[in-house]
Design a binder for these strands. Structure first.
Lengths: 330, 330
DNA sequence: TTATAAAAAGACAACGTTGTTTATTTGAGC
DNA sequence: GCTCAAATAAACAACGTTGTCTTTTTATAA
């Protein structure tokens, strides 16, 4: 590989001058700068990052630990949010996936330490509480889509309650006023907060809480669980007779579509459907398109990176807002 | 940060001895090794990768350029396949997303060169021909899920033809013998190959080609296009009267589900449906579950990494096999 | 015990860059 | 043309490692 000295020899200057040119030091005469740039061009020289890092004692590396317990593809946006900023600021985002069976968090942190990461973003694949090993305290760390109970680390999570309030309010404003909420399981924080949000919307609109029924639904990829959700949804429609159904996540909504269709009802006409996530292409795939609250993954990724970039030290507890993506399901 | 010399001082040995311990050099007496390990433990020392790289003149970095023209989430498996192996071999997989509007391939390659990447995996998000800038020739490069017309680079792509043959044959073997194939647009290589595969299956089974109709479908996220697909599917069912429909990708299949249901038919009973991709959770979300040919993304990612790891130099043109994921749709 | 070889540990240079100090060149003012 | 300061360039050390060579220690055989 061609080094800074090769360039210097080729340009007929001291190698330090080449270094100056690379680093935009203004104390290089235009004539020399030109010579150097020409030599760089001709030799195809590229500075060696590893050498720069050792000498500068700065790595420019930011770690991103993706706690991939769930295979939720759209969370990729979390990474993208951070990565776009990293690229922009000429930093390296070192992404490490950890999961229970394969790579431990310890291993990932160790790896990042060896690379002298200047900060770590720890991101969970769904909004939840996490418990981090103590080594994290050695380097600035920020949590995305999760939080720690001690409040020891800054964090950003989706504003679940406000999202639920907003979509419920939107339903109410469109005249739907008897709503069944097929919520996520309440051991998930999002479910508890969304419940509050929905109730708040009803209270704000001075609607009777009797017209809101909230149930937890079991989520699982196994086929058995699907039919449970479906049966429960069908029962609920027949007994409670809602004019709209709010679903805890888009996949639940898809199931409800099938149930509604099987009952001979038309989504968006006979019954409204709303949801949370904006999960990949799913909402635009069903007919009619599913109105859903989009998770602010990209924004959370950006916020987290920015927090580190700005070398903040406060213990921020930030929330990020969902976006209502309106289609035709209500 | 604690360095190798700090450890040496703490352990009372020469710093070279510490280096030996780190690198598992057997010529260190057990007693000294123990002292050093203890010191490492006590000081929390971790070798500085950047320094190792400069001295060793090896980066251990493999670049992964993800040509993300399409937002297809399940292609993440391509990265995972490579990353799992990278981790296992203690290499760094540097993933860079490039796309038309933001980051150029040139920029990504430059970045990788600065990191002295020892190899590059160039992965496309859908099976297609690519044209790479010439700098790639400077470092071992392998293509995943794409190929170059010159055959200059080794590559691995999904075996589209065999996949189509296989799923069609599977349908035929189950008694479906009048099949409508809602294929992808034929300007996509996959569509052309799959057409051949389906025809081959018919020929192999000595079925009349008249019982196979193949049509290209326009794929687009905009809502207008959806209805086009749907209308065409409905027409086809009414006119051609197939007993099974093969779809070019899972999202098309979902649309067909809705059409079939609207026509009062039952998927898996009155009409079979098969598809390609195994796109995230979609196939298990629809009812009944969608039988589909899973793309071998993970395997392609692994193969590509392995090719570089083994320092192969042949111009391999490999294909990877899809996997038939059987559910209840046919 | 001594000679000798093998094993282990140490000393020192090197990797490709940047920080710091020192030397040289340039240009302004007389 | 000369002086002197400012601008520019060069020299050299340093970053934290590993490679190579040299020295010291240990073990073995006579």
């Amino acid at each position: 590989m061609v080094t800074i000295k090769d360039v210097a020899a080729h340009a007929g200057v001291a190698f330090k001058t080449v270094s100056r040119v690379i680093n935009n030091d203004p104390t290089v005469k235009p004539k020399n700068r030109e010579k150097v740039l020409k030599a760089i061009e001709e030799l195809g020289y590229r500075p060696n990052r590893a050498a720069q890092m050792t000498r500068r004692k700065k790595s420019g590396v930011v770690g991103f630990i993706a706690d991939e317990l769930l295979r939720v593809p759209y969370t990729f946006d979390l990474i993208k949010g951070a990565q776009d900023l990293a690229w922009k600021h000429n930093k390296e985002l070192m992404v490490l996936n950890v999961n229970v069976d394969k790579y431990s968090v310890e291993g990932a942190v160790n790896h990042l330490f060896e690379h002298r990461a200047e900060g770590i973003i720890y991101a969970a694949m769904y909004h939840r509480e996490v418990q981090l090993p103590s080594h994290f305290s050695e380097v600035p760390t920020v949590l995305a889509n999760c939080y720690d109970s001690d409040g020891h680390y800054p964090s950003i999570v989706p504003d679940e309650q406000e999202a639920a309030r907003q979509i419920t309010a939107s339903m109410l404003s469109k005249g739907y006023n008897r709503i069944a909420f097929l919520n996520l399981n309440e051991n998930i924080i999002a479910a508890r907060l969304r419940k509050k949000g929905a109730e708040q919307a009803f209270a704000d609109a001075k609607q009777s809480p009797d017209n809101l029924i909230i149930e937890s639904v079991i989520i699982n990829d196994e086929d058995g669980e699907h039919s449970v959700t479906r049966n429960r949804a069908a029962e609920l429609i027949n007994s409670f007779k809602p004019d709209a159904i709010l679903c805890g996540q888009d996949p639940i909504a898809v199931e409800v579509y099938f149930v509604v269709q099987a009952l001979g009802l038309q989504v968006g006409k006979d019954i409204g459907i709303g949801s949370f996530d904006d999960w990949d292409i799913i909402p635009s795939l069903v007919q009619p398109g599913l109105t859903t609250m989009a998770l602010p993954h990209y924004e959370m990724g950006q916020w987290a990176f920015n927090y580190l970039l700005e070398e903040r030290t406060d213990k921020a507890k930030e929330t990020a807002q969902f976006t209502l993506v309106s289609r035709q399901s209500f």
